[in-house]
Design a protein around this nucleic acid. Structure first.
Lengths: 156, 156
DNA sequence: CGTAACCTTGACGTGGAGGTTAGGCTCCCC
DNA sequence: GGGGAGCCTAACCTCCACGTCAAGGTTACG
């Protein structure tokens, strides 16, 4: 096993791995973005690898999309639904209910997808703009350097 | 002339056009994101078309990049520098100084460009992920529908 | 001149996303 | 079994990006 992860992690380790503070982890838990972890006897939180992944996902959504945590919660919840459906899949539960949930999850992810697609487009526009601008800057710079040469030549 | 804009705008109009509140415009001014507009006799702010463009730019940066206003200020300042250089271009001012400013502006825009490029990349990744996920959702859904058919057949 | 619509500054409030501090408990190792 | 590192909750604080009055001045129109 490749350094097979101790199967559980305390909050400090999760914080180190994800680069957020312990406070932030507790805060996310409070806001429902992280499911309440199991605890040791004394009350210490016990996390698992999944939680690290989850936190990373939250951070990506936050940084990239710049959306509110409330909305991010919706998105990670959609994930959870899929996971659950998968888990109890062979449990032959109420198929209609599963379909309903899956439908709901799909809608949320489609919403997220729409946001991302739109942003990608807009950002590509912005990137093109910036390229143009940099080009113009470079041209100006070249012109200024030309002027400088003239001045030198004039004096020389 | 196509409805040639009254050449000046009061704060209310700017607010309407840009979709931000008057408060926000004053706030941006306070924070140096908008240059203090000229005023009428009585103190009413007088804006011009440029200001509308500026506000739109600020909003784009805010929504797309999700960065702090302080950083946005740096970016729009870079623009200002270019504008100034252009304006006094034939004024034959200190070329060395102009070069220095232009250099500075270029750096800021390059920074912005780097951010945008990185985000575009990451968001494209995210988009791909979401596409996969949607595909999996659809598959699950198909499976569930299969189960449903079986059940119906079994009963029938 | 009246008045309605628009604007001014100033001050305080708010919601989101955590940071910080206090006071105490737990875990683990020597 | 004692001590230090790590963790707990609770409460308060901060920063940002505005929102929301309040009290009053300005402008345009009839």
């Amino acid at each position: 096993m490749p350094e097979a992860s101790k199967a559980y992690l305390q909050i400090g380790e999760v914080a180190d791995r994800t680069g957020v503070t312990q406070r932030t982890l507790r805060f996310y838990e409070e806001k429902g973005l992280l499911k309440p972890p199991t605890r040791m006897e004394g009350g210490f939180r016990l996390y698992f690898e999944d939680d690290v992944v989850r936190v990373e996902q939250i951070r990506r959504l936050q940084n990239l999309l710049g959306i509110a945590l409330a909305e991010i919660k919706e998105m990670v919840d959609a994930d959870e639904v899929l996971r659950e459906i998968k888990a109890q899949y062979r449990h032959e539960a109420d198929v209609v209910e599963k379909k309903r949930q899956l439908q709901r999850a799909t809608e949320v992810v489609e919403k997220q997808y729409a946001i991302v697609r739109q942003k990608v487009e807009q950002m590509q526009e912005m990137r093109a703009d910036l390229e143009k601008r940099l080009k113009r800057f470079a041209e100006r710079m070249a012109e200024l350097e030309g002027l400088e040469q003239e001045a030198v030549a004039g004096r020389g």
